[in-house]
Nucleic acid binder design. Sequence first.
DNA 1: CTCAGTGTTCAGTG
DNA 2: TCACTGAACACTGA
Length: 278
Amino acid sequence: MPELPEVERGRKIAEKSAKNATITDIWIDNDDIVFEQTPPKTIQKALLGRRVCAVKRHGKQLWFELDRRPWPLFHFGMTGAFLSKAEDAFQLETGPDADRATWPPRFAKIRMEFDNGEELVMVNSRRFGRIRLRDDPENEEPISKLGFDPLEGLPSTGDFAQMVRQRKGTLKGLLLDQKFAAGVGNWIADEVLYQSRLSPRRKANTLSEIELDTLRAELGAVIRLAVKVNAEKEKFPKDWIFHHRWSKGKLANTPTGHEIIFEKIAGRTTAWVPEIQK
DNA sequence: CTCAGTGTTCAGTG
DNA sequence: TCACTGAACACTGA
């Protein structure tokens, strides 16, 4: 699930349940992939009894600022999410897969209890997610290697043009590169290109000034809108290709009747409309 | 049973 | 060193 807007939703869930609260109990799954060999005791020692001062995000990386370092840094991988007990109870009543919701949830990797009665869990069924400790997350890897976060602010048009023009690969590859824009994933890249009417195969160094400005504007617009509706897909605009990209294998068309094709570009399945995207 | 996948990393190439 | 590509990773759900 997690590209920037979904991770931002996770940040808000964590903020709501944990901000200004103290961690009173911790359970940690025995998983040396997700925890990268960090011993459970080390994690426990860093978190237990600490107060959560803030919950921050850059791209797809999410971390807590505690009243003492080191701080926990979370990455959801392909399948991760934060669930809070209150939030999950809400989903249980209203969500489409309500019958599957249980607490604690399946695939929990870490579970934290707070002195305000809340509980927060990070789940990660396929274990591409990571939970790490960092003294200064923003200035250490992996965050230090990431590019700008499009929700925080875009580079100026001039800087953006320069950044794009020095790249020789495809636009799809550029947008997926976290060293360029942090937080863009497969569906956002496709949506931005569709809205910009640019081909994912287009070489980055061939864009005109107008095309560069359009790309920059749509990158900001798609992400801001997805975050505004809390990454709830049903609330995405009707004219987004997003709603049609999962019909792979069937005949896929936009509402305007244009054919959507699926091709592997820059290593990822790409949904795009050759008639519209040049 | 097979296969794709909303992500990242690493080996190999240019 | 850099930019880029493709494979590998782990495991669920279709």
